[in-house]
Nucleic acid binder design. Sequence first.
DNA 1: GCCAACGTTGGC
DNA 2: GCCAACGTTGGC
Length: 150
Amino acid sequence: MATSHYKLPSDDTNTWLMKSEPDAYSFDELEKTGRGMWDGVRNYAARNNLRAMRRGDQVLFYHSNIGMEVVGICEVITEHYPDPTAESGDWSVVDVKPLLRLPQTVTLKAIKATPELANIALIKQSRLSVMPVQREEFLKILEMALMVNG
DNA sequence: GCCAACGTTGGC
DNA sequence: GCCAACGTTGGC
């Protein structure tokens, strides 16, 4: 099955959530290329979160605007480096690779309806595009994605 | 299409 | 350094 090679994030790594509008960059696209550069972040808080990422950290891939759901998990495969798409300013990217397409997506609606996720940054800081996620929150979302029949 | 939340800019 | 004006994000 698709999840057979997926490994839960190890205890010495951090977990994150990153947003993308799927018509700009989708999980499909990341899966197609096998590797992606997370560019275009132009917000200091989000940039600082990129800079705090380490190789092996796992990231929930969220589709904003269209879908409004977590669709997959990817892994950070480089430390941060300067954003080559930035014409000015001090901006950063990391590279990621797809790890797992969720068997069942986890919608914003479902997240909002889950008491254990009441404090997730996705809800508390709705405009932030790169944010830390607590391990328990990450595992809860994964559990929801694996549940049979919703 | 609207608007709340929130980040940025610039005048003072 | 304050804050009003403005721009952007992203859910509804």
